[in-house]
């Protein structure tokens, strides 16, 4: 079933504030097997000039994916989430996310299209502080593979 094209351009209200915790950053770094001291050791992060532990570059997905669920789980969109795979991902950073950040995400539907029997949606999540400082934008393309589509 094609996705509802009227979702394109739609923005959602800011998500509740997410507080970035030191232990969450350490847990995420451990999960990707990355022992970079900036993720783990406060002194190492401060020596690089940061106020607190630095989050790995892809940590932003923790916030943006949760926010994008507002869109992709909306039954009116018509996305079969059980057939969804991640098509592509892009992050642009104004600065890295650090522990202690309080961040909220505004999701906008950038693009919807059908390609070779697959339904494809691209969302942008703008991750900002409550003061309105844009920290990171996360662009995610999800592909719902059609029953006839090649894997």
């Amino acid at each position: 079933m094609p996705l509802d094209p009227t979702f394109v351009g739609r923005s959602y209200p800011p998500t509740p504030v997410y507080q970035v915790g030191r232990e969450k950053i350490r847990e995420f770094a451990a999960a990707i097997g990355d022992a970079n001291p900036a993720y783990i050791d406060l002194e190492a992060a401060r020596a690089l000039g940061y106020s607190d532990l630095v989050a790995p570059p892809t940590f932003a997905i923790v916030l943006s994916m949760r926010a994008a669920h507002q869109v992709v789980m909306d039954p009116a969109l018509g996305l079969d989430y059980s057939r969804v795979v991640h098509g592509d991902q892009r992050f642009t950073y104004t600065r890295p996310i650090v522990a202690g950040d309080e961040l909220s995400v505004v999701v906008t539907v950038e693009k919807i299209r059908s390609m070779a029997g697959n339904e494809v949606i691209t969302t942008r999540g703008d991750i900002s502080t409550p003061d309105g400082e844009l920290v990171c934008s996360a662009y995610s393309t999800l592909v719902a593979r059609g029953p006839e589509a090649a894997t």
Partner: peptide
């Protein structure tokens, strides 16, 4: 990304990353 961040040392020096 680890090939990049291990090379530059400072993971906060990434300004854009896409795949």
């Amino acid at each position: 990304a680890r090939v990049v961040t291990d090379w530059i040392g400072d993971p906060g020096a990434i300004v854009e990353y896409s795949v």
